[in-house]
Design a protein around this nucleic acid. Sequence first.
DNA 1: CGAACGGTTGAACACCATCAACCATCGTGG
DNA 2: CCACGATGGTTGATGGTGTTCAACCGTTCG
Lengths: 252, 252
Amino acid sequence: MPHRSVHLIPAAEGAVRGIQVACSSCNLRELCMPAGLDDHELARIEQLVGSRQKVAKGKPLFRCGQPFGALYAIRAGFFKTCVSAEDGREQVTGFQMAGEVLGLDGIVNNRHGCDAVALEDAQVCVLPFERISELSREIVALQQHLHRIMSREIVRERGVMLLLGSMRSDERLAAFLLNLAQRLQARGFSGSELLLRMTREDIGSYLGLQLETISRTFSRLAEDGLIEVHQRHVRILDEAGLRRLVNAPACG
Amino acid sequence: MPHRSVHLIPAAEGAVRGIQVACSSCNLRELCMPAGLDDHELARIEQLVGSRQKVAKGKPLFRCGQPFGALYAIRAGFFKTCVSAEDGREQVTGFQMAGEVLGLDGIVNNRHGCDAVALEDAQVCVLPFERISELSREIVALQQHLHRIMSREIVRERGVMLLLGSMRSDERLAAFLLNLAQRLQARGFSGSELLLRMTREDIGSYLGLQLETISRTFSRLAEDGLIEVHQRHVRILDEAGLRRLVNAPACG
DNA sequence: CGAACGGTTGAACACCATCAACCATCGTGG
DNA sequence: CCACGATGGTTGATGGTGTTCAACCGTTCG
C-alpha cells in the first residue's frame, strides 16, 4: 500500500452538502478506480456511476434477499454487513469504510446475501452492475480491477476464518484493531488513534465473542499497556506488542 | 439446484487413463461451464483449458506464495485449501470436489493465498487466467459465469464465518455434513451416504474445533440416532433432525 | 429528569481444549 | 505371513476460556 496521503475529509464534506464530485477529481479514486487510465477511458468510467445515495446512521443500504442490481462504492461513512440465521442470531461479517465496495455477494443469486447498515451518516456511489459488466468488457484495466476487488474480498474473509477458527479473544481483538488502524492509515488518518464506529456487541459478533468478553478484553489489553481505551476512543500504545499477540498469517 | 443426475464416474475413469475429454462432452460441464453457449462459443471456450494435470494424494496443487497464473477446475478428486500462520498453526478454509474451482484467491496479489492439497488422487483442468480474462471480454456468458463463481465463493466463506462465529460443536458438524451431502447429491451421488476424504483433524481445523471434539461430536450425533458412523463412512439417518440442529441462515 | 442505550465488572457455570491412554487400520519389510 | 510402526480415531479426566446472568455505571437524548 503506497504511503502518499489521501485526504478524505474534503470529499466527505462535499458529499453531505450534496456537491457532485466527478470520479476523476474524487480523492478516493486511487481506492475504488483502476490506475493507469487514459482520459477517454476515465471519461467512460465516470458514466459508471449511476447516482449517489445518502444513507442515514442506522439505516440499511440494502437488506438480505432484496434484488441485486448494483455495487456500491462508499464515498463517506462507515458500514457493517451482517447475515442472520432463522433463529434470529446475527453474525457481523465485516466493517467497510470509504473507498471500499459493498454488494459483491449479490452477484451469484441476483439477490443481496447480507444486510448492509450504515454505522454513521454515509454516502455511496451506485454502480449498476450491468454497466460495470459492459464497460469491463471494453476497458481491460476495469476488468482487472473488478477481479481483484472480488479476489481481495475472498482473501479478507479467509483471514477472518483463520481468526475465528484458531485465535483466542485477545488475539482476535488485537488483530481487529491492527486491521482497522492499517485501513485508516491508508486513508490518511492516524494509525494509532481510533474512533470506533461500532458497538461492543457488533465487534463481538464479528469476532465470534460476547460483548462482555470484548469489554473485558479491552480492559486487559489496556492493563497490559498495549492500548488506551475511553469508550469508543482507542489509542494504540504498543503496535509491536499487539502484532506479537496476533502472529499474522505467513503469506499475506 | 436442478435434480438431473450427473454421472461423475466415467469422466474420472477417463481421466486416470489419460484420455483427453473435450469440455463439450465433459459431464461436469454444467458445473464449471456457463450454460446457453452456441457451438462457436463452446469451441472457443475449449481453448480455455491449457492442459490437464494430475495431483497425487497428499501433494499440493499449489502452495501459498507461489506465483498465480491460472485457475484450476477440478475434474476428479477431492482437495482441501488451508492457510497457515507464522507460528505454524493451520486453518483449513475449505474442501473442494469435482466441478469446483481452485485459485480465486490468487488474483489480487498475483500470488496464491493458500495451499491446495489433494486428499485423494486427483485431476484438474488448468485454465490460464490471462486467457479467461480475454475470452470473458468477448463471451458475455463466460464473464457472467466468472463473476458468479467468485461471488459464490464470497457467500460460501460468509457462511463459514457464521458457523465459526456463532455455532456450537454439534451445530457445526451437522452443518458440515449437510453441506457435504448436498454437494455430493448435486453430483449424482447419494445424499445420505458419505465417504469422508479428510481426517478428523482436517474437519476440526475447518470447523474451528479440536480433533477430539470432532470425534466426540460424531459419537454424540450417532447416539442421538441422527447419523451412523464407521470410520470415514457416515450415513445420515435423520436429515431433518440435523437441519433442526443447524438453523440455516434465513436468506441463503 | 428519567428512560434508553451502551459499557463495565463480578460470580457461577458450560463447553471445549488439553493431556493421556488405548484401539483400529493400513502399509511395509523382515 | 506376520510383526511392526505409523497414522488416524476413540474415550476418559481435568482444567481453562469464554458464556451467561446479573448488578451497576455513564452518556445521551427526548
